[in-house]
Design a protein around this nucleic acid. Structure first.
Lengths: 260, 260
DNA sequence: ACATCAATGTGCGATACCGTACATAATGGT
DNA sequence: ACCATTATGTACGGTATCGCACATTGATGT
């Protein structure tokens, strides 16, 4: 059975092979403390990991793909407040003492994660100061992302916000091609799909992206960065600082694939 | 000299007399640990307590008045992401490991606070688990406030947002009268002053507020609550849960002064 | 009482986005 | 190859807010 095989695999978990940046940054002894409780899970597109108001059973350290954190307004319309990839984890508010999730978390690009029960994480944190400090600092970086989004939503035009979002999604992917419909993006950004269509058309005509039936290819990262508002760079810088790496820590190796 | 007198006063600091809800909620032993390092400061209108990108020297436990946390966008325009009164503290991100402030904090209503150096707070936290847990939970509540604001900025109309903001400000005051110009409010909400003028006029004609040359009086809280978006209640509820109090914990004793 | 300044009300063309509808194009299944 | 479905482009009146300008009103100091 699959679960059994996963369990075997996890018991052999080698830290160096882990792509989640938080887990990778831990001292070996503290990683070992947590590793016994990690289990690897596949994340399917559209899968919901936490629901607003519901208890947080697991904390997920994302490895591949990315997850949206969505605020749910009373009119039922979700709106993205943050995007999480291999640089982070979701459900970490449990370490602040939260018992329930204040937002929905949903998989926007299929991938995988290592998850741990809330209880096991809290237990590990009590004995692993570096893990605790790193998760707190990550929480702070995520908080900054949300705060920047609050200002961005109020001030920046859709063209800029779309470019910002595509860059953030690209950073959290490993390839230039994203499986995203305009409808999905419109939901994330809280605007009409037709409005996204117009903004995306502009980016496509500029040669920054190529768009075709649920598939977006990033053609020109630099062009997109110029088209995006400052919010992209501000948040990216914060995550770079978090891991103390000089060159763009979040930027995938393979970027700008079709450009010179 | 004033500083000497304050010092004397602080050395006699009685927890029961403190209006800051975080400090008031501490176990006596832990309060004592912190009290020796607290100093009382007056907060003048417009005073800036932290600047974006600058180190956080002091953490402020607000007692009277309220403080805005403002994101600074590159066009120089500030935009409020959170409002803090006696229910909380500012600069608390130092306990997440932040070294600098990611936002501006500015006094919007004159009052007072107890402040402590970052170093002393970190020291106290290491020895006072309840203080640490309470500050972490407060941080989480503030995070929710910011996330709600992100969604609110994208979705809700100015009329609703203005009503929400007035309610939040009223909760953090002790009287119904606020010294606020439309210009200040417009800056907080990130809109034109003339737009605020129209929205405020609507609220005034409805009898919810009275507006006169930099002074707003809340006449009808219930009316305002109906005019506000859900975001007000969602955030207020979170702070009530934080302090575990059943009836509106944040609502000042003296509300709806002119209403039956 | 008067002058001055700050705060507010208002007007108006421009614009971004809404809300909705419909047409077209690409994809996937049979 | 065909069809059903999904994704995208586009149109159009409506609305909230912008960006700017100017008039008016209330507070303040002398």
């Amino acid at each position: 059975m699959l679960p059994r095989r996963w369990k075997i695999r996890v018991s052999r978990l080698v830290q160096a092979s882990i792509r989640n940046r938080v887990l990778a940054a831990l001292p070996a002894t503290e990683f070992a403390l947590l590793a016994a409780h990690l289990s690897r899970v596949e994340l399917a597109l559209g899968e919901r990991l936490h629901s607003a108001g519901e208890p947080i059973s697991y904390v997920y350290f994302v490895e591949r793909g990315f997850i949206s954190a969505l605020a749910l307004l009373s009119d039922g319309q979700p709106l993205e407040i943050g995007l999480i990839g291999a640089e982070g984890a979701i459900g970490v508010s449990v370490i602040l003492g939260a018992e329930t999730s204040y937002c929905e978390t949903m998989c926007q690009r299929a991938g995988s994660a290592y998850r741990v029960t809330t209880a096991a994480l809290k237990d590990a944190i009590a004995r692993a100061p570096h893990l605790r400090d790193l998760l707190l600092r990550y929480t702070h970086a995520f908080h900054i992302q949300v705060a920047q989004t609050a200002a961005c939503n109020a001030h920046h035009e859709l063209g800029q916000r779309l470019a910002r979002w595509l860059l953030a999604a690209h950073d959290r992917s490993r390839v230039a091609e994203l499986s995203l419909t305009q409808d999905m993006i419109a939901t994330m950004l809280g605007v009409r799909r037709s409005t996204v269509s117009i903004a995306a058309g502009t980016l496509q005509r500029a040669g920054f992206i190529r768009y075709q039936h649920g598939h977006i290819t990033i053609l020109d990262r630099v062009g997109l960065e110029n088209a995006a508002c400052e919010c992209y760079e501000a948040v990216a810088e914060e995550y770079r600082a978090l891991f103390g790496v000089y060159p763009k820590a979040l930027t995938p190796v393979k970027n700008r694939p079709d450009l010179g």
